[in-house]
Amino acid sequence: MITPVSRRAAMKWAAAGTFGLAAGIGTTAGLARWIRTEPAPYRFFSEAEARLLIPICEQIIPRDDTPGATDAGVIFYIDRQLSSVFQRHQPTYRLGLDAFRKTCLQVYKSPFEQLEFARQTEALRLIESNKAPKELWGDRSQSAFFNLVLDHTKQGFYGSPRHGGNRDYASYRMMGLAYPNLIGQNRYAAGRPI
């Protein structure tokens, strides 16, 4: 039920000339096929896409003794932005995730989600350095896709929780920063009055 909005936006950007240029992908006609009807916790992603993206983000910021991308809800940050201010990135995700899914099936004979952690890391290094099979990616840049997901994951992990990620200020806790930043309440420097 979200697709008509997204599609209109995509066409607008195509007309403006920005659409797809950064990643060099996407035709607006193709977007019509992405209509999703089943109810889901996501606004943009299908369940299958989310299942793939969640471990990608977790690779980028994994859980150790502090929360990782999954715990912090990074997927919800990305999903929410893709259906609002990042509409222009929708094709990069949709086509990029699809190509990455196929890449794993071809190279590792397994869905990404089912690979061991170290193998998953390897798979991402492959696209980070543009070394996945070219025929699966066409003229789309693998590294541009990876870099976009990397950047958005960091945003979701470190940005304000009001955008859907950084649940419970996970990243601020991890870095030992006061949270939230209460205006006027964080002005005491260690041992030194200001």
């Binding site: 150790d64 502090t66 990397l150 920063l177």
Partner: peptide
Amino acid sequence: PYLFTNMRPPGEPRWGKAHK
């Protein structure tokens, strides 16, 4: 914190546990 994620000496890994 987000801006700081781009402040890295050359060669420093950009993601994974090393990033954290």
